[in-house]
Design a protein around this nucleic acid. Sequence first.
DNA 1: CTTCTAACA
DNA 2: TGTTAGAA
Length: 130
Amino acid sequence: MKEKELRRSLSVLPIGTVMKLTDLSARQIRYYEQQGLVIPERNEGNRRMYSLNDIDQLLEIKDYLGEGINMAGIRQLYEQQQQKEESAKNKRQQQPLTDADVRRILREEFKAVGGLSDGTTRLSVRNQEL
DNA sequence: CTTCTAACA
DNA sequence: TGTTAGAA
């Protein structure tokens, strides 16, 4: 299924369409770009052209922001995500995660999210409960 | 008409 | 983040 990924990577959507699809303002979309997240291609007229992957990316960012994570935090989660994708290529086949593994990973995620929050939002589950 | 950049009563 | 001006 390489064709599918190719289509999702084609940058063919102008910012106006992205605004409707993501329910984000042009200001926000451009600002997130300045922050180093979702850098769209530019057409001949210097206009931003987004791909379907960019749309997903923006929606993901929107979710994180809704959970009280700031852009600096998203950048870090993003870098961690990219590093995990690389390491995943090496560790071809992995053993299924044990119950203890899941709880350990979950604890790390909450610790990271809690530390990156801006303070206006609080997690409903305390780290100790994990 | 749509989008871009830069700036702020 | 919103909004606005001036240019493309």
